[in-house]
Design a protein around this nucleic acid. Structure first.
Length: 544
DNA sequence: TCCACTCGCACATTTGAACTGC
DNA sequence: AGCAGTTCAAATGTGCGAGTGG
């Protein structure tokens, strides 16, 4: 309940009146999101007393204080009301609206890693029938879960807070064997993107002990993946709002005239939509119902869970939602390069923002950045982060042999992919962890990375409805995590910096991946879990 | 027959190299 | 020579619609 309040306020603080980001400043920000159960007071940060030193001030900016505002929330809501659909293709398709956030409350000098994953929102397969989405059966086995790490990662809080953080280059695919690191989804399934903010440790890595993280979920970003648009409203919204689809916008008077007759809500309608409506009288004759909202079963499902959760005061008391044994997997999608002499994970695929001419170095931080609302009004400040290519692993891992903490680990994996189990988008239940036997993925999901003695998380299928338990695996046998051989060489992405070759996953990344999902990133669908902050401790991290 | 899916197409934006002028 | 602004073509993103296959 308390968490509900905090979450809603947090969301509200960033609510935008229009398509742009909200105007709330950090000063107006609500109280921080609640910490994960088990967080100590020290972890949360004590209020600085008189004469508090810098360290105490820095302690205030713990990961729990980080606020994330969804950019173009109103646009997202428009799509959400109509039932967002995202095209997935074999080659990979970007999301639209793209996932962009404004982050505040970070420690300017602390380095963070921002990443996104997309998890099943439920265990249903959907079909579009009678102009609305309906449950069409049980979900297919979850695709290998992959993480999209923002190419700037790791970067300082000052960097992340300076401008919008854009994940617009994230691509979705339905190709189970996708070699490009795109996020793999099943068509006609509902998904929920999640943003994770992980505090990088002193080695620009994460996954070590006491790694702090928080997860942010915006319910309006949930969507149903499709191979072609089902709902003409969504098509229309995409055409109207996506600059790449301008070519499909109708402009002549006749179109507009007919459009006005057809819909007051969406006055502009494209020629193609008109064709579609003329060809499919069923569509135009059927009253428009927000498919997602109108998906009776899905809605009931949500309401049920919301109601159940609302009776609970503590996060750990949250009921566990039902999920089949969805064995999602995770892949860190990033470019790795080892700095000379550096014995830690680096993520140098990103062009150093400190080197970028337009960047503001850390030493510039104290130059009084403009207030948040001014940032929003300033085009330069509102501009997206410099697009950068996220890189994919390839080849083997000798180059990372010197990475910190790796010495104690077995030889680096040869796989370009790494799979660990990923919890579905379900209830938070760190208090109810159990250990269950590891169940390997189907063959095409079994590319794994050797990460012995690292906790792994999965949903337990045997739980009764409303009780999904997540389990930590402290040990994976080598056969269980056996990976397939190195992937075929991947075409070099356009614009990839010459020095930014695709590299195999660093054990640190592997560890981090495991870490993420061992730290119960899985969230409830209900509002209390739309914004969650936590801090985890991983034991036996480098215990080789 | 139905429907999810693939592929090629036209049209749009984005990007970066080449060019020009100061 | 160096810099800034402009131009242009290639790359890329997008939805459409015909075709395919289960």
């Amino acid at each position: 309940m308390l968490q509900d309040k905090g979450l809603s306020e947090s969301e509200e603080a960033f609510r935008a009146p229009g398509p742009a980001l909200g105007e709330a400043s950090a000063a107006n920000a609500p109280e921080p999101a609640l910490a994960a159960p088990g967080l100590s007071g020290a972890a949360l940060g004590s209020p600085p007393g008189p004469g508090a030193d810098v360290a105490a001030a820095a302690a205030e900016q713990t990961i729990e204080n980080i606020k994330v505002g969804l950019h173009e929330k109103e646009l997202w809501k428009k799509f959400h009301e109509a039932g967002t659909e995202m095209i997935i293709t074999k080659a990979g398709r970007r999301m639209f609206p793209s996932y962009k956030v404004k982050v505040t409350g970070m420690n300017p000098k602390t380095k963070y890693i921002l990443l996104i994953d997309i998890v099943p929102a439920d265990d249903h397969r959907y079909k579009f029938c009678d102009n609305k989405w309906m449950v069409a059966g049980k979900a297919e086995p979850a695709m290998p879960g992959r993480l999209y790490v923002h190419p700037d990662s790791p970067a300082t809080g000052a960097h992340w807070m300076r401008q919008l953080v854009s994940f617009q280059k994230l691509k979705l695919t339905n190709n189970h064997l996708d070699p490009f690191g795109h996020i793999i989804l099943n068509s006609m399934h509902k998904y929920q993107p999640r943003l994770h903010i992980v505090k990088a440790d002193e080695n620009n890595a994460f996954g070590s002990k006491n790694t702090a993280f928080c997860t942010h979920v915006f319910p309006e970003t949930s969507f149903i993946s499709v191979t072609s648009y089902q709902n003409h409203k969504i098509t229309q919204l995409k055409i109207e709002n996506n600059p790449f689809a301008k070519g499909f916008r109708g402009s002549d008077d006749s179109d507009l005239r007919v459009a006005r007759l057809q819909s007051k809500e969406y006055p502009v309608i494209s020629k193609s939509i008109m064709r579609q409506r003329l060809i499919s009288p069923q569509l135009s004759a059927t009253p428009d119902v927000g498919p997602l909202l109108g998906t009776h079963q899905a809605l009931q499902h949500y309401q049920h869970e919301n109601g159940a959760h609302s009776q609970l005061a503590e996060p750990q008391d949250l009921p566990l939602s039902t999920f089949p044994a969805q064995r999602d997997s995770s892949l860190f999608y990033h470019c790795l390069k080892r700095r000379d002499g550096a014995r830690h994970l680096d993520l140098p695929c990103k062009r150093s923002y400190l080197e970028a001419p337009s960047s503001v170095g850390e030493d510039h931080y104290f130059r009084s950045p403009p207030p948040y609302d001014q940032q929003m009004l300033s085009p330069s400040y509102c501009s997206e982060v410099t697009p950068r290519e996220a890189c994919m692993y390839s080849g083997s891992g000798p180059e990372i042999a010197g990475v910190s903490g790796v010495d104690d680990l077995p030889p680096p994996p040869l796989s370009c992919n790494m799979w660990t189990s990923v919890s579905p988008y379900t209830s938070y239940s760190v208090q109810t962890m159990e250990t269950v036997p590891y169940q390997p993925f189907p063959t095409h999901f079994t590319a794994t990375t050797m990460m012995p003695r690292l906790p792994t998380l999965s949903a337990q299928s045997s739980q009764p409805p409303g009780n999904a338990h997540f389990s930590v695996y402290n040990q994976l046998s080598q056969s269980q995590v056996r990976e397939r051989g190195p992937s075929a060489s991947f075409p070099r992405e356009r614009g990839l910096p010459p020095g930014c070759e695709r590299k195999p996953p660093s054990p640190h990344l592997n560890a981090a991946n495991e870490f993420l999902y061992s730290q119960t990133f899985s969230l409830s669908r209900e509002s209390s879990l739309q914004y969650h902050s936590g801090m985890g401790t991983v034991e036996n991290w480098t215990d080789g």
